[in-house]
Design a protein around this nucleic acid. Sequence first.
DNA 1: TGAACATATGAACAGTTATTCATACGTTTA
DNA 2: TAAACGTATGAATAACTGTTCATATGTTCA
Lengths: 109, 109
Amino acid sequence: MAEQHLDDFEGVKAAMPDDEMLYDLAELYKIFGDTTRIKLLYILFEGEMCVQHMAELLGVSQSAVSHQLRILKGARLVRYRREGKTVYYSLADDHVRQIIECGTEHINE
Amino acid sequence: MAEQHLDDFEGVKAAMPDDEMLYDLAELYKIFGDTTRIKLLYILFEGEMCVQHMAELLGVSQSAVSHQLRILKGARLVRYRREGKTVYYSLADDHVRQIIECGTEHINE
DNA sequence: TGAACATATGAACAGTTATTCATACGTTTA
DNA sequence: TAAACGTATGAATAACTGTTCATATGTTCA
């Protein structure tokens, strides 16, 4: 009885973003695909915090936190400012919050 | 001159979702963190399609597509219906579109 | 300048993941 | 029932990822 299914390959291809964009998108989501990074972002939802404190709060090593912050920084998801020996990290913008909320909605149903 | 930074660990902890939720969230994003799966989802934005055709369209093996669809199915992101030998996949709901759009916004800036 | 502290980073390792190959399962039709 | 076709799946492999450890970099203060 068949509902209508796609057979117009060209149409589908035309609607699909270019490879570079798809790659970037996957890379972005990869970043959210790790609990340590998600937790770091949740911390930063509340405000800025230094590396040491984030490590303590999450119960992971300073090195691990620093490595993950590097990735978040690379994706422009977080900012940092130095104050003496200490570096304080904060969210780069409100997009992060939106993305996380988007995913949360899917979970809660 | 130091802006206000977080030092109330308890407050931050209270605002953080429980570990199970954070785990689920990361698992969800992991799924979007792969170009093959993202491409499959983009195909399904246009309508339903059978496994064979998706494989051809993306230029990957039938097996690879099937493996990835299994993951998408497991996360309830796609549905399927069987029609004879053929299985047609489609999006489970509109959340997927929202999540992808959310990420896309961050990319384009 | 040297010691102490906070952070960053490279290398190594263990765990995870996507693809491929071979094959099993399910359905149709001759 | 047997053959043909579409799909699913287990095992194996190569590539990738997160953490740890050791150490470098950068900053402050005595």
